[in-house]
Design a protein around this nucleic acid. Structure first.
Length: 485
RNA sequence: GGCGGCAUAGCCAAGUGGUAAGGCAGAGGUCUGCAAAACCUCCAUUCUCCGGUUCGAAUCCGGAUGCCGCCUCCA
């Protein structure tokens, strides 16, 4: 397995610190609003990482935190007359709903900042004791950036160049403009906790340092998050943890790229965000997931509704074949006919390649490409009557369903259950176009009758009407099947 | 301004030295009462541009152009 490591800028072989075990920490959300597609991408990408590591035989301990105390949460509370805690609870609950529908598995521990105040204070104290932090008379505590010579390495920044760009907020009492807050003194109407430095609340970065060390111990093998967290958040985490412990904090830093809209980063501040819920009103969560995995996790991913629609088509194609394969496997008497040697060989090749792709920095896009290759081979066999009934075909069908099941489990896509998903897909599409299934069924029955009477003119008339509604008909040996285009 | 990333067909996208995966869309064919789906065939002598290294480059190096991101909260 190889990963592109942000710290070194290189693709490196993955060797966990302890053989066979992976300690993984991913930055979760700040709970002050509904999750948008950017959050969905990060969640899905690292979910696939965990699933694949486990599939590969690693024992993974996976932590993903919730930031439940923060200025944005506080402001949100003030706007809506809720306490910080109420705001956080509400959006954490929404997060769980969204993630469950997206098929994102929970982490092993999902710690919240407010439940780890003591751990953070201990870490802050340690930093003060070792000269890496200082408390101001006003009651803030800052990290002394210049006490950590390696500062800037993760994000490729030079401390002297950083200095010129730093802003100092009024009221701050830093030794150096670069220093960042570990503890913020209490203010009016703001949640606070007692501390040796006076009442206050933790700075943002300290929670990840404290909680990751508490649950995983150092060094972590992998730390993940969105690209925008690399600086300053991860840089600061690294400074805190390494300064306090003297140990390596993280061995492999993984950062996912942004979801973009009109060539721009999707972000709250730009107002161009689409929530997971917005998407799920129109499309199946599985389709969204399939879309998100269609591009390598580090690259920017441009969102448009058209592309989501394309993803749905591709996803459906795979499901149709999976369903057909299951059908073929159920009710055939196998013959001894041989398949052309090249089909068998091509299938085996493609079947081995998806795993290699995932091992190469989690290349889900390439893995899906190989799946489509297998898919076409299967369709080729299915298409030829004498082939589909051969003993050898049966073996390949079984192998294909196994591959689908396995890859589906890793990618979190329900290839193993095509019938259910195809039916949800039909319903989802029908809802999108406000089509009433009962009416469609009625028209189809009428058309079937006309067809039986060989009244094709009438039958075609009905079909045209359906087409105008957006319904496509397909006559199969087992009767007509309809779907929404 | 500093640092980083990206540029592959109509659209999307994989591909880090050996001669361009895959998907969507499109054209023709097979199948079909006709369709649809599926299958077959076709669809980039070429990877933004200009130089260089090499027997050989989309892939490495130098330069140019364009787009994006971080440098302030952000997945």
């Amino acid at each position: 397995m190889k990963f592109q490591n942000t710290l070194t800028g290189q693709k490196e072989p993955f060797v966990p610190h302890q053989e066979g075990k992976v300690k993984l920490y991913v930055c979760g959300i700040t709970a002050y609003d509904y999750c948008h597609l950017g959050h969905a991408r990060a969640a899905v990408v690292f979910d696939v990482l965990v699933r694949f590591l486990r599939f590969s035989g690693y024992e993974v301990l996976f932590i993903r935190n919730f930031t439940d105390v923060d200025d944005k949460i506080i402001n949100r509370g003030k706007e809506s007359n809720l306490s910080s805690q109420e705001v956080a609870e509400r959006f954490i609950a929404a997060y769980y709903e969204d993630m469950e529908r997206l098929g994102v598995l929970p982490a092993d521990v999902e710690p919240r900042a407010t439940e780890h105040i003591q751990v953070m204070q201990d870490l802050i104290q340690k930093l003060i004791d070792t000269g890496h932090a200082y408390a101001t008379p006003a009651g803030d505590v800052y990290f002394r950036v210049r006490s950590f010579p390696d500062y800037g390495r993760l994000s490729g920044r030079n401390i002297e160049e950083l200095k010129s760009g730093v802003r100092i907020e009024p009221g701050e009492d830093k030794e150096d403009p670069l220093d960042f807050a570990l503890w913020k003194k209490a203010g009016p109407d703001v949640p606070s906790w007692p501390s040796p430095w006076g009442d206050g609340r933790p700075g943002w970065h300290i929670e990840c340092s404290a909680m990751s060390e508490k649950y995983l111990g150092l060094p972590l093998d992998i730390h993940g998050g969105g690209q925008d967290l690399a600086f300053p958040h991860h840089e600061n985490e690294r400074a805190q943890s390494e300064a306090a412990s003297g140990k390596t904090f993280v061995r492999y830093w993984l950062h996912n790229g942004f979801v973009r809209v009109n060539q721009e980063k999707m972000a709250k501040s730009l107002g161009n965000f689409i929530t997971i819920r917005d998407i799920m009103q129109e499309y199946l969560p599985e389709v969204l997931r399939f879309f998100l995995l269609g591009k390598h996790y580090r690259s920017p991913l441009d969102f448009t509704w058209e592309r989501l629609q394309e993803s749905e088509r591709g996803f459906k194609r795979l499901l149709e074949t999976a369903w057909q394969t299951g059908q073929a496997l159920e009710n055939q008497k196998w013959s001894a006919t041989d398949l052309p040697e090249e089909i068998d060989r091509e299938f085996r090749t493609a079947a081995g390649l998806w795993r290699e792709s995932l091992e190469d920095d989690l290349n889900t896009a390439a893995a899906l490409g190989h799946l489509f290759s297998m898919n076409r081979l299967i369709n080729r066999i299915l298409d030829q009557k004498k082939w589909r009934k051969s003993q050898q075909a049966g073996e390949i069908f079984s192998a294909f369903l196994d591959e689908l099941e396995t890859l589906g489990r890793i990618l979190g896509l329900p290839f193993a259950d095509p019938e259910r998903v195809l039916s949800s897909l039909r319903k989802s599409r029908a809802d999108r176009k406000n089509i009433d299934p009962a009416e469609v069924e009625k028209l189809i029955a009428k058309r079937q009758k006309a067809r039986q009477d060989k009244n094709f003119e009438q039958a075609d008339l009905i079909r045209n009407r359906l087409v105008q509604m957006g319904v496509a008909l397909r006559d199969t040996p087992s009767g007509p099947v309809w779907e929404v285009e």
